[in-house]
Amino acid sequence: MASSSDKGSGLDVTAKAAHERRRATPIGKSQLTNVVPLVKPFLLAVVEAFAHAYGVDPVGQVLAALADPTRRQILERVRGRPLSVGDIAKTVSVSRPAVSQHLRVLQEAGLLRCHKNGRQNFYGVDLGGLTALRSYIEGFWDDVLGAFQAAAVEEAERKRRH
């Protein structure tokens, strides 16, 4: 039976339970591929608003974080699935405290996300920083394609005149 707080929401208890189950279900890679184009403008707006409000350059943070080869190596390691700090430390040639510092930099740049499972911290890829970087690079790509199109049109007109 629905409680009094459920009556005004327009959802019965069964629908609410189904909604909660959908929210708790992890997103698969194929579903994520379909969702990213839909949420990309929203994510970019959030990142830009945050950067503006706090004077932070998210693309600069991402580029600075990726400038270090050890951090790039860590990001590659967790690309397939989240790993514990211990598992990450086994794959790089720096001390455990240095690994923790690299993880902090990657997390602050929006490249890694941390979640706890018991006493262990697991790190996986966070799309926020990668989305900001991709948008930045795509801006250049649009310029390059525009310049290429203009050059192709100019070349075609020149050939037509001769």
Rank of each mutant, 00 (worst) to 15 (best):
Y123T: 12
G128K: 01
V85M: 09
A132H: 14
E76Y: 10
S30W: 08
R72E: 08
K90N: 03
D12G: 03
G110K: 02
R81E: 09
F50G: 01
R23V: 06
A18M: 13
R71I: 04
N117D: 15
V59W: 00
A150P: 01
F42W: 07
R113P: 04
S84V: 09
N34H: 08
K40D: 11
V36G: 07
G80K: 02
V144N: 03
C114Q: 09
V125M: 05
Y123W: 14
G129N: 02
P58G: 04
A2Y: 03
V78K: 07
L63W: 03
A53I: 00
T33K: 15
A67M: 02
T131M: 06
D68L: 10
V153L: 09
S135P: 07
R72Q: 15
L63G: 01
H19P: 02
D143F: 07
D68V: 04
L127T: 04
A51P: 06
R79I: 04
F50I: 15
L66T: 15
Y136D: 11
E157L: 12
V105Y: 03
L11T: 02
K90R: 06
S3D: 14
D68E: 14
A64N: 10
T91V: 08
A89G: 05
G55M: 04
P37D: 08
V13K: 03
Q107N: 04
R160E: 05
A17M: 02
G8R: 06
E157P: 09
D142H: 13
D68C: 03
A150Y: 06
L111F: 02
V62K: 05
A67F: 10
V47D: 09
R79M: 09
T33E: 09
H115G: 04
C114Y: 06
H19K: 10
R81G: 06
I88L: 07
H162V: 07
V99M: 05
Q149N: 11
P41S: 13
F50Y: 14
K16Q: 06
S135A: 12
L32S: 05
H115V: 04
V78I: 14
K159R: 15
A109M: 11
G129S: 08
W141Q: 12
V35G: 04
P58S: 01
G124Y: 00
R96M: 07
K116V: 12
E154N: 07
P69L: 14
E108G: 06
A45D: 10
G124V: 10
A147E: 05
S30V: 13
L103G: 01
K90T: 10
A53Q: 10
G129F: 00
R119H: 12
R21K: 01
N34S: 08
Q120W: 08
A132G: 12
P58K: 00
V153Q: 05
F148N: 13
A109C: 13
P26W: 05
D142M: 02
S135G: 10
V13C: 04
A18E: 14
A147H: 02
P97W: 02
A51T: 11
A67E: 12
A132P: 14
G124F: 03
N34P: 01
L38C: 00
A17H: 05
R160P: 00
V46T: 07
G110C: 09
L38T: 00
R22F: 12
D12K: 03
E154W: 00
H115K: 06
G60T: 01
F140T: 15
D142V: 15
T131V: 10
Q149V: 08
E48Y: 05
A45E: 07
